[in-house]
Design a protein around this nucleic acid. Structure first.
Length: 411
DNA sequence: TCTGGGGTCCTAGGACCC
DNA sequence: TCTGGGGTCCTAGGACCC
């Protein structure tokens, strides 16, 4: 019987899938506005503050003239924000994504702190994605700064394993936006995603089926997209650290310890097997708004303030639904307590809605079903089971609406 | 001085129906 | 009154990702 080799595990040899990841995207967009910050430790995070507004007002239209000394520093920050992106210079100090800004300030107090500006990042996101689809139309959106691209059917997409096309895309994005990216090309999304990290920033990595043992198996399991801190910890407890060690476990053993579905998936992932297609279109499943308070709030003592925030969240979700043209019928709330524990409640109503009053009423009912002894750190409102507002099913009623106090007509 | 905001998908139990 | 087994919907929580 022939031995199973790594090359056997990736069956479709002609599929070429790319994963493209923009380098330090938010920070890089900010550097386009503030070229004087190039090479310096800069972190993006927290909300817009008074000093940010004052600075922008003082230098309106001449942002590149703002002297370094005038930029806010991490050391001056007092709040609950986290870092969303750090420049490579800042990463050298040990600061990185998801780290609390207060902790980051201890590591690198002199780093420049810029507020997040999603509108600006979305603008550049649309631009770089338009460049890509002009060259390779089968593109899957994976958020503001990354995409998968199917090279398989693109002219020249197979040359040098995809390297030629990857180079063209990199150069076209740089020319159009001034931004750099890293690209991994592999037989599937799973491997491409790992490969895009190999030569970051600004690099290209090509992985072939026969490279599995050499390039993938030495990596930590955590590098697999879908293995997070919890699964990683459990794997470690079984003495599994690398993907190769994971691949060495029998499928049945993984199924026995991680369940039928997860176990089988872990085994496939370790062997580089992944047949998910590149999906170019998708509909949203839910829309939500949430906010972390400046200080923890008490349901009774801070009732008025909480009520205002709650109403505003409902209004924001309703605005989002209306602006994007969706209605939904599962209304939910999310609380995060001072101890960081999370509670959610939701309720499915009879009539699809995008109305702030209807959302607030159902969400208010949810709020009555959740414990409110501990102080609250965060409040969120969510609408799920979405349908396009122009979908005929959106106006259908499941049962007698008059009988349901939460969905009765508003006026 | 810990720990944002916006998402997706999965699991699991109970209700309810056939 | 000894007993079943699917299927779907709803809800709560949790893992994970960008």
């Amino acid at each position: 019987m022939a031995a199973v080799t790594a090359a056997d595990s990736i069956s479709d040899l002609t599929r070429r899938i790319a994963h493209l990841d923009m380098d330090a995207f938010y920070a890089s967009v900010e550097l386009l506005r503030y070229p004087q910050l190039k090479g310096l430790p800069v972190v993006i995070g927290g909300g817009r503050r008074h000093e940010d507004d004052a600075l922008l007002a003082a230098y309106a239209g001449r942002l590149q003239e703002i002297p370094l000394a005038d930029f806010p520093r991490l050391s001056g920050y007092a709040g609950r924000g986290v870092i969303t992106t750090a420049t490579y210079a800042a990463r050298a100090f040990g600061v990185g994504s998801a780290m609390g800004l207060m902790k980051a300030a201890r590591l690198c107090p002199d780093a420049i702190l810029l507020p997040v500006d999603f509108a600006e990042y979305r603008h550049y996101s649309r631009r770089f994605k338009a460049v890509i689809t002009d060259i390779a139309p089968v593109m899957e959106d994976r958020g503001v700064d990354e995409v998968y691209i199917d090279f398989t059917q693109v002219a020249g997409g197979q040359r040098e394993g995809g390297r030629v096309l990857a180079r063209l895309i990199q150069k076209s994005i740089l020319d159009a936006t001034g931004l750099t990216c890293s690209i991994g090309v592999a037989p599937n999304k799973l491997i491409a995603k790992m490969a895009s990290e190999f030569n970051k920033p600004g690099g290209i990595a090509i992985v072939h089926p026969e490279d599995l043992q050499e390039k993938i198996w030495p990596l930590a399991c955590r590098k697999i997209n879908g293995i997070g801190p919890k699964t990683n910890e459990k794997l470690q407890q079984h003495g599994i650290t690398t993907i190769g060690e994971l691949a060495a476990r029998p499928r049945d053993w993984l199924v026995a310890h991680f369940g039928k579905s997860s176990g089988a998936w872990l085994h496939d992932a370790a062997w580089g097997r992944d047949d998910r297609p590149v999906v170019t279109e998708s509909e949203p499943v839910s829309m939500s708004r949430e906010t972390t308070f400046e200080r923890d709030l008490h349901a009774v003592r801070d009732k008025a303030l909480l009520g205002e925030i709650f109403t505003e969240l409902c209004q924001q979700v309703a605005d989002d639904l209306q602006r994007k043209g969706y209605v939904g019928r599962t209304i939910g709330i999310k609380l995060r307590y001072e101890d960081f524990k999370i509670a959610t409640r939701d309720q499915t109503v009879a009539i699809y809605t995008q109305d702030a009053v209807a959302i607030r009423r159902a969400a208010g009912q949810c709020l009555k079903r959740v414990p409110l002894q501990k102080r609250l750190r965060l409040l969120g409102v969510r609408v799920g089971t979405l349908l396009r507002a122009d979908d005929p099913a959106a106006t259908a009623t499941g049962h007698d609406a008059q009988a349901d106090p939460f969905t009765a007509p508003l006026f």
